[in-house]
Design a protein around this nucleic acid. Structure first.
Lengths: 343, 343
DNA sequence: GTACTCAACTAAATCGCGTTAGTAAAGAGT
DNA sequence: ACTCTTTACTAACGCGATTTAGTTGAGTAC
């Protein structure tokens, strides 16, 4: 059912029908009963305007593109969930594409999105350097491209709550995991850990810093990184993992080496993915409000699309939250800071 | 950059440029050097045909709609990953929408997809009854709508491998979880469990069947269902959970009640999601090839879109696989079937 | 009676492309 | 010299809407 046929059936011109259906102010002078007739016919024939045609004409597709490392990864999926929540509610749809860390795809997909006339783009945990003709919002990462809004965690606070927690439990020999270089969070996270450690008077032993190796996040990466840590024979009583997934692998490696979690080694994760609470022992972790970050990304993007004039918000900072569960406890050697430990 | 401008710049008509770029056979008579000029100019101006216009004209959008219960749920996300894999490779893009079990959205989203001229639809774990004007493929579930292809697990085999495993380990008092009614898998799964149990001579005690209650899959649901099971005081030595997520909750509930997994109670999950392998103890589970199911869905859908004449494949069955890990062991009461136990 | 206003519409252009039917010019055949 | 083919294109319509700049007829003012 097209506008033209509907108009023909009504004995009106397509123009009139279009104006009425879109509630244009030009249609103000059209009498109510004509309008009613039009609406009635539209309902009767289940008329739905063709989005392609409308988008072609108006140059607005009400579609946005989302690029993520991998849809099935819990991090991306949680962010997407928030993005979707807001977009659908506002009548927008979205395309998704997973680049799987392939540089060519990271370049290509945004172009393909533009080819398909998206009104804007959201990039999740993806290094960004392009300057496109549509608004772009990135989630996570330290992107300094002019003109893109960045939704980012307060990394300083995240490092602070985690390290202070461990510090107050008496931990002094703390091992760390560094994320892969391609993750846009890696750098900011690490810089802040270093800063907070210094502030607390903690020294980070270089042999207690393990590098996560591998493309797709999997417990396996944390497992292997922890094996390296253990092989160095440098003692540690706590481990701050890069994320919950790698923490799971780490716990397994620790356990295989005969260490008990948390009695021998405390472990702190990052993200607070769903299953973190149901690990055994349940995971102490720094929660990132991923859904909220996705929602914020979508909201800010639509704002920028619909008010092109307004000044650009370069950063939107969200706050982490320490979720204390069962993988952390006082350090075994008893170097407790008097009066400061928490139960 | 549009066709028209490109043509103008070349001193040719848009028709010619279009024919050449689309490698139409009508362009056979056009000399190679003209073609070269056209391609060179297209590259120079980075000409990309406008998808909206092309789709409007050809009535093919190279876009498909995917409807899932919730993108951030691992099950949907894994299937989507497979779907995406195939679609992008074939030059298709896709919309996603999560219905979150709201009946109105399950109705509305497919309509909105059609409004946006998708060439086909994939529904993941979603009850289906509509008969649409485009090809539809559903993943999982027992949909008997004429004209839709259904990608489905061999549920009989799934029940068989799980129950035989437990049976051969000596388990006779086995507890079960039934999925929520809205999950399209629930019925087929349960029917087959009953069938296999009967075949093995196992009786299913009605008080050892717990119902999962709640919309979004979460360990919490399994936790609560297991609490109910325990409250019945009916003894059991094994538990077949509805999925891995609920198995995680179940293990916690069992542990809280003082039971040890697997020594007191063996647990079998379903799906084999990523974190199943990294639970402690790691989860024995019936693996569903979710990615492959997604890929198959996409592949079959595109086949149906591109060969509208070909006869309809109503079902595509995929095989489950038992992954034996650490949550199952011989039954404590020693009712082993001689010569049949596996280590 | 003329000019002006207003209500109720509509014609026509446009968005960017695909496609069919056709045309003009050159060459080939007789 | 005439017809026929072939080559190398192009005009024009349509896809399904939106939107601007009118048009028409009735009513009102003077």
């Amino acid at each position: 059912m097209s506008l033209k046929k509907l108009a023909e059936h009504l004995g009106l011109s397509p123009a009139t029908v279009s104006l009425v259906i879109n509630r244009s102010s030009v249609a103000d002078s059209i009498p109510q009963d004509t309008k009613d007739r039009i609406f009635a016919a539209a309902r009767k024939f289940k008329y739905r305007p063709n989005f392609l045609a409308r988008s072609l004409r108006t140059q607005r597709s009400f579609t946005i593109g989302v690029i993520v490392p991998e849809v099935s990864d819990g991090y991306s999926a949680s962010v997407m969930s928030g993005v979707e929540d807001y977009l659908l509610q506002e009548g927008y749809f979205y395309f998704v594409a997973s680049h799987r860390h392939r540089a060519d795809l990271i370049d290509e997909y945004p172009r393909m999105f533009l080819e398909r006339s998206v009104d804007g783009l959201i990039a999740v945990d993806t290094p960004w350097h392009l300057n496109l003709s549509v608004p772009v919002v990135t989630v996570s990462g330290h992107n300094d491209v002019k003109g893109v809004t960045n939704i980012v965690l307060n990394h300083h606070r995240a490092a602070e709550v985690a390290l202070k927690h461990l510090f107050h439990l008496g931990h002094r020999q703390i091992a760390f995991m560094k994320g892969q270089e391609f993750s846009s969070d890696t750098e900011a996270r690490w810089a802040n850990i270093a800063r907070v450690a210094q502030h607390l008077g903690l020294t980070i032993h270089p042999r207690l810093v393990a590098q996560l190796e591998g493309d797709s996040p999997s417990p396996q990466l944390g497992y292997m990184a922890t094996k390296v840590l253990l092989a160095s024979r440098e003692p540690f009583t706590a481990l701050f993992a890069f994320n919950d997934i790698s923490a799971m692998g780490a716990i397994r490696a620790l356990r295989e080496s005969g260490r008990h979690v948390p009695d021998d080694v405390s472990v702190v994760g990052f993200d607070d993915i769903q299953s973190a609470a149901f690990q055994n022992p349940s995971l102490t972790t720094v929660r990132q409000p991923l859904r909220e970050m996705g929602r914020a990304a979508a909201e800010i993007l639509l704002k920028r699309i619909n008010r092109p004039g307004s000044e650009l918000q370069e950063k939107h900072v969200v706050e982490p939250e320490l979720v204390i569960r069962e993988t952390t406890c006082p350090a075994p050697d008893g170097k407790r800071v008097p009066g400061k430990q928490r139960p």
